[in-house]
Simulated scan of single mutants.
Amino acid sequence: MRKWLIAAFGVLILNIPVQTAAAEEEVPLEIEPVYPENQETGTKGYFSLAMDPGEEQTVNFRMTNNLDEEVTLSAEPANAYTHPKGGILYNPSVDSPNTRLLDDAVSMKEYLSLDETVTLEPGASEEVPVSVEAPDVEGQTALGAVVFTTEVSEQEADGSGGNEEANIVLNTETSYKLAVQVNLPNESTPDFSVGEAGFLTETGQVFIEMTNNAHLIQGDILGDYIVTDSEDEEVFSGELAEFNMAPKSNIRYQIPWNNESLDDGDYTLTLNGSAGDDNFSVEEDFTIAQDDIEEYAEVNTPEVNEPDGFSMPIWVWILAAALFGGLMLVLGKKLNRPQAKEE
């Protein structure tokens, strides 16, 4: 019996499929800037243009379709925001309490214009023009982007069991975001500040407000932090990875709760860091209420959907498991009992 099991296991192992790395696929769509004479020297991958306030200019993106089928993309201008976890993101609009543009920020999407759709024949390459207007502001940098998005396509994914009705239809799209930065002749003074701290019940993270109140990209923001409880005992600590902030933007920078327990109470976030050449050090108190913990648990606890009309009590599952375990124990003893030798 035991030899038969070993042989069967060996056959099973030999028939397990081995995955191999697929050959590199060609990029389906290539988009690259065609750099004009006023492109910032040494800057590649996006437009960084020296312009005067009110000046207008047309720049081009070269687009190449490497597929054997026609590709249609939607196109729209976008603003530059700061990501709540650091870095710059580009979207036509963002409706979130965790990232926003200040009231006097430049809405760069209003200064970029292009055709709403672009269609490329198989293997075709063409240049797509974008009109850029430099904002008339007393600032150093205006930042936005152009977003190209492939039209939603329906793809069938085979279901298990070979049942045609089990096939799944997937709607897929891909976005390409290319920055457009306008460098004005004015010079802005850095104006970075840190605000209040708090707790985000949606994600279970601590936040600290950060504001870049200047018409420039605030670079080189980094630091380290420690969260202590009301007894001044460390709860957790960590570092801010270096990041940039978009011009005239505000975020609630999110810090993961790096402790296995989450209790209600009063806490203090101490943050020491630097933004460019300026250092900063803050201590901000915040409170986590029991209601906050309950709301976080409610939002993040997955629901288990039972089939309609079917509900089995937990004691039935426990009893079934116990009976199955006992049965396997008896069978195991019988299989391992030595057989009598034949005379």
Rank of each mutant, 00 (worst) to 15 (best):
126 E>V: 12
24 E>T: 13
213 N>D: 13
159 G>I: 13
302 P>W: 04
67 L>V: 08
138 E>T: 11
28 P>W: 04
233 E>W: 03
159 G>S: 12
302 P>L: 04
200 L>C: 13
68 D>R: 14
97 P>N: 07
273 G>F: 09
93 S>K: 10
246 A>G: 05
282 V>M: 07
30 E>W: 05
91 N>C: 00
286 F>R: 05
291 D>M: 10
253 Y>A: 15
81 Y>A: 02
151 E>I: 08
236 F>P: 10
222 L>E: 08
84 P>W: 12
3 K>Y: 09
206 V>T: 14
117 T>S: 07
240 L>F: 06
200 L>Q: 14
293 I>K: 02
170 L>G: 04
70 E>Y: 06
121 E>L: 13
118 V>E: 05
66 N>M: 08
90 Y>Q: 01
253 Y>K: 14
55 E>V: 06
56 E>P: 02
174 T>Y: 02
187 E>G: 03
263 D>M: 05
52 D>L: 12
30 E>Y: 02
183 N>Y: 07
113 S>T: 15
280 F>V: 07
316 V>R: 10
245 M>E: 09
222 L>M: 09
55 E>L: 08
71 V>C: 01
106 V>E: 04
289 A>K: 11
80 A>F: 00
166 A>H: 15
246 A>K: 05
93 S>F: 06
223 G>F: 03
141 T>C: 07
111 Y>G: 00
273 G>R: 07
304 V>D: 02
5 L>F: 08
317 W>C: 07
248 K>A: 00
17 P>S: 04
247 P>S: 06
252 R>L: 06
207 F>Q: 01
67 L>K: 15
55 E>G: 07
315 W>K: 07
87 G>F: 14
328 M>T: 15
252 R>I: 03
25 E>R: 09
283 E>P: 09
137 V>M: 05
62 R>C: 00
177 K>G: 00
117 T>I: 05
226 I>N: 13
149 T>Q: 05
285 D>L: 01
214 A>Q: 04
260 E>Y: 12
259 N>E: 10
242 E>I: 01
53 P>A: 02
96 S>P: 11
332 G>T: 14
309 G>D: 12
219 G>P: 04
18 V>W: 10
222 L>K: 09
325 G>C: 06
323 L>S: 15
322 A>C: 14
231 E>P: 02
32 E>G: 03
325 G>M: 10
227 V>Y: 05
178 L>K: 08
114 L>R: 01
185 P>S: 06
70 E>C: 08
193 S>E: 15
4 W>V: 15
178 L>T: 10
293 I>M: 01
116 E>Q: 09
157 A>I: 15
87 G>C: 12
228 T>V: 14
337 R>Q: 11
300 N>W: 13
320 A>R: 03
113 S>L: 12
152 V>F: 14
72 T>F: 00
330 V>M: 14
177 K>Q: 00
130 V>L: 07
246 A>F: 02
163 N>Q: 14
178 L>I: 13
302 P>F: 06
151 E>Q: 14
281 S>G: 01
180 V>W: 00
1 M>R: 09
296 Y>T: 11
60 N>L: 08
161 G>W: 12
185 P>C: 07
63 M>Y: 04
88 I>Q: 00
172 T>R: 10
249 S>Y: 10
17 P>R: 02
17 P>Y: 01
211 T>G: 07
287 T>W: 04
291 D>G: 13
339 Q>I: 04
34 V>Q: 11
116 E>H: 04
140 Q>T: 11
26 E>S: 12
